[in-house]
Simulated scan of single mutants.
Amino acid sequence: MRVLHAVTLHSPSHAFGGPVRVALNLAKGLRARGHEAGLLALGEGFAGPWPTEVEGVPARLFPARRLLPLGFSGMTSPALLASAGRLVRDADLVHVHLARDLVTLPVALAALRAGRPLVLQTHGMVDPSGRLLAKVLDAVAVRRVLRGADAVLYLTAHERAGLDAVVGAPLASAVRLVNGTPAQEERPAPAGPPRVLYAARLQARKRPVDFVDAVPAVLAVHPEARFVVAGPDEGERAAVLRRIAELGLADRVSVPGALGGGEVLRELRGAHVYVLPSVDEPFPMSVLEALSVGVPAVVTHSNGLARDIAAAGAGRAVDPGPAGVAAAVLDLLDPAANRAASVAARELAAGSFSMDAVLDTLLPVYEGALRG
């Protein structure tokens, strides 16, 4: 089976975050099972020759052009748009990681026009919105592709309700599919001063400043601890640096910027605790990656993984804000608690969120779309 995965943007800094990671993980898993899977996306930020594959996945990347000052929603590529019809016709099935943008929406529309089986996965990016651009795109294209797709994959009940609201009726084609993460080598037993990691986009909803504001309380108990705030800037880097300076934490908190996939794994293997203080986070890949190497995670209660983490003892779920984050980190820096949570984290990732489990759910969806 030839599957085309379309996502908005791939860049060396991984600026588009989780949807690209999900697309790559699925494509790699499909290829391991004997299918042909490739990636279609905009590209940006490559200094040398543009890659024709990403992590072993064949990739067609088109130079991004920013037509409107609307972040990812204002990016497109005339060359990609001109090639979309041919590219979807070359696939047996088109899997679009859908956002309200000028990349994934045109690809989904091209698949409908070509009569190709179409699977959409929205990653929490298509929800009810009062913004004018969202209303226009919903009226012109979003409802059409949601109704026309053979399957629409969602992560949480909250996301499913939002999709139904966008369409204006229950989606009969909706199927729940969790994110998965490949098996990873277990981290070594933590050694040296405590090391606490945040590795996600520096974006307001993800609340990296809450991470910084939790640092003094942790340092009061563990004055030798070190903290890392890593990730591409989406508007909050200046606030993070300003807060670090205000609290006098420059010698305790490092801000290395965007990290590649291998660099993130190296940071995780050296971390005692992973923290993602974001609110209303659907199903964060960074947390799954932390669990997969055995790093206990601290998340807020509105995180889509919070119940699983709390029930398994793989970390802690807390109320938003630095006080809850600090208390949970201190709890997990206890060696016995950290060991127990690390074992639970590995078991949770391998049992509930393995790529094999995800693909076992996804492939029957593909088969149904091909039959339909």
Score class of each variant (00 low, 15 high):
L153Y: 00
M1C: 03
V88H: 10
H222W: 12
V218K: 01
P194D: 06
V298R: 00
H10S: 12
R21M: 11
P193M: 13
A64M: 14
S73F: 11
V142Q: 02
H301C: 03
R60T: 07
D360L: 12
G351H: 10
A290R: 11
A217F: 07
E36S: 15
N179H: 15
P208M: 01
V167F: 07
R243H: 01
A326W: 08
H5I: 02
A340K: 15
K28I: 11
G257F: 00
L93F: 05
D233E: 12
G45Q: 02
E36Y: 03
R21A: 14
V218Y: 03
P216N: 07
Y274E: 06
P49S: 14
T122P: 10
A314T: 08
L305I: 05
P284S: 05
L163Y: 04
R226H: 09
V152C: 08
A183N: 09
Q184S: 15
V96L: 09
D138M: 00
D280L: 13
L305V: 07
G45S: 04
L276I: 10
S254G: 12
A47Q: 13
V275R: 01
G45F: 03
L171K: 12
V329G: 03
D210N: 04
V136Q: 10
P49G: 12
A79T: 15
A110I: 05
T52S: 14
H95F: 06
A134T: 13
G45I: 00
P193I: 13
S292M: 03
V343A: 15
L363Y: 10
R113H: 10
L26I: 13
H158I: 13
E159T: 04
V209T: 08
H97R: 02
V166R: 09
V228P: 01
A23D: 03
T156H: 01
H158T: 15
A41F: 01
A32W: 04
L171S: 12
P335K: 09
L67D: 11
V229R: 00
G17I: 00
A183W: 14
V218G: 02
V299G: 01
G261E: 13
P19F: 05
A311W: 06
V140S: 08
L330D: 03
R371I: 08
A297I: 06
L265W: 06
Y198W: 06
A238L: 00
R160K: 15
A91T: 09
L265M: 13
G368D: 13
A141R: 06
R339N: 10
A141L: 07
P182T: 10
L288R: 01
E44W: 14
E36L: 08
M285A: 05
V358K: 04
V22I: 13
G38K: 09
P216F: 10
G315S: 08
L241Q: 11
G168D: 05
T122M: 09
R31H: 05
H123W: 10
G261K: 05
A157M: 12
V215R: 04
I244T: 02
V175T: 14
P170G: 13
L330Y: 03
I244K: 00
L333P: 11
E246Y: 08
A311C: 05
M1V: 12
A369L: 07
L288D: 02
A172N: 09
